[in-house]
């Protein structure tokens, strides 16, 4: 294999996803080519830097799961009945800037998943849920 072909494959040699044949060809070349060895070392270093940098990005807020769980319809709006109101749940509605109503949280009530609306959850409110 030529240097150019080897270099094109090095990123995936580093991430361990080349086919057996390709990986063997790269390994064989690298054993005898100092330039490509250097390229391998720097690519490996880069991959570590990328992983660390991306791992440091902000965590996914828990509120997203609340929204997904409610939106996928564990309970439909229509299943809220008078009983829920009698139990004193406070209701509200969150409307995103894209105009879709979203529930902000939910609880088990009489064996059913029931959304509890907070009065208003602004989209820019980044409070933890």
């Amino acid at each position: 294999m030529e240097c150019e072909q080897v270099r094109a494959l090095i990123p995936w040699y580093v991430n361990g996803t080349l086919s057996g044949d390709e990986a063997a060809a790269v390994a064989e070349h690298i054993a005898v080519c100092a330039n490509c060895r250097e390229e391998l070392a720097s690519t490996h270093q880069l991959s570590l830097q990328v992983r660390t940098a991306i791992d440091e990005t902000p965590p996914l807020p828990g509120r997203v799961w609340d929204r997904v769980r409610t939106e996928k319809g564990e309970v439909q709006l229509g299943s809220l009945d008078l009983g829920s109101f009698l139990l004193g749940l406070s209701l509200g509605l969150s409307v995103t800037r894209r105009g879709r109503a979203r529930f902000t949280s939910s609880m088990r009530l009489l064996g059913r998943q029931v959304p509890i609306y907070s009065t208003i959850e602004k989209e820019e409110n980044s409070g933890k849920s």
């Binding site: 990123p11 995936w12 580093v14 991430n15 361990g16 996803t17 080349l18 880069l46 991959s47 990328v50 992983r51 991306i54």
Partner: peptide, 14 residues
Amino acid sequence: IIFLTFYENLPYKA
């Protein structure tokens, strides 16, 4: 490409 290769470890074919 950087994300998919070095963070998700996807093969180039994928």
